[in-house]
Amino acid sequence: MNTDGDDTDLLDAYLRATLARLGPAGFEAVIRAADATCLLLADGQSAVLAGPDGAAFGSDLQREYLALLAVLITGRTDHLIVALPSADGASGWAVVEQHLTRDPKALADLCTRIGDLARDSVRTGTALAQLWRAS
């Protein structure tokens, strides 16, 4: 857990480090994506936790986007981002608590469950879209 008493200082330090890692263009892309997601969530809408499509928002920026959302939502920086490889070779990311890294089996089980849920969601979405078009 963070020991910083002032969340503003924590966020400011995190954003400065992110800017240093990504450079201005990458930083702006991540901030814009996170801002759009936060606006959707604040309005009570569901938000797909994904950045813009295309090579300009590649895997590294997707990871940074998710990490920023985790900091904004939890107010902490002690989470970890782990890769979630899928059967089609694409990678996704998950935010996990640090204690899971001490138990590789629990982490693997969690990643499997997340992958299964994601595949189920895609199948459900596809089925609903087909029903919608058919009606």
Rank of each mutant, 00 (worst) to 15 (best):
P52I: 10
A70E: 02
A55C: 05
G51I: 05
L66T: 02
T74P: 00
V48F: 05
I73L: 12
Q62L: 05
D78I: 07
Y65G: 07
D78V: 12
D60Q: 08
D78K: 08
G58W: 00
T77R: 15
L72K: 07
A56I: 05
A50H: 13
R63A: 11
G58E: 02
R76K: 10
V48M: 10
V48C: 10
H79C: 15
L68H: 04
L72V: 15
I73M: 13
L72S: 12
V48W: 03
A67N: 09
S59G: 13
P52Y: 08
T77M: 07
E64S: 06
A56M: 03
S46N: 09
V71R: 06
D53T: 11
D60L: 06
L66P: 03
A67I: 00
G75W: 08
T77Q: 11
T77I: 14
A47M: 06
F57V: 01
A47N: 05
Y65P: 01
Y65R: 00
L68Q: 04
T77P: 08
P52T: 10
V48A: 09
Y65F: 14
L68P: 00
F57N: 02
A55E: 15
V71T: 11
L69H: 11
L61S: 04
G54M: 11
I73Q: 13
Q62D: 05
A67W: 01
R63G: 11
Y65E: 00
A50V: 12
L69Q: 06
L69E: 05
S46A: 12
G58Q: 03
R76G: 07
L69V: 07
A47G: 07
D53S: 15
A56N: 07
A56Y: 06
L49W: 05
E64V: 06
R63Q: 12
A67V: 01
D53N: 10
D53W: 07
V48D: 10
P52W: 12
H79T: 12
F57K: 02
D53I: 09
E64T: 03
Q62S: 13
G54R: 13
A70L: 06
G75P: 09
L72P: 00
Y65L: 05
S59T: 14
F57D: 02
G58R: 02
Y65W: 10
F57C: 04
T77C: 15
T77Y: 01
L49Q: 04
L61R: 09
L49I: 15
D78W: 11
A55W: 06
L66G: 02
A56F: 08
G51Y: 03
Q62G: 13
A50M: 10
H79K: 12
A50W: 04
D60W: 04
L61F: 01
L69A: 02
A55T: 13
I73H: 09
A50K: 09
I73S: 09
E64H: 11
L72G: 02
A67Q: 02
A47S: 12
R76I: 01
G75Q: 08
G54T: 11
D60Y: 06
R76S: 11
A56K: 09
I73E: 12
V71P: 00
P52R: 15
T74A: 13
D60G: 09
V71A: 13
Y65M: 05
G51Q: 04
G51E: 03
V71M: 14
F57M: 11
A50T: 13
A67K: 01
S59H: 07
Q62V: 04
A56Q: 15
A67L: 03
L68N: 00
G54S: 10
L69I: 09
D60P: 00
A55R: 08
D78Y: 08
H79Y: 05
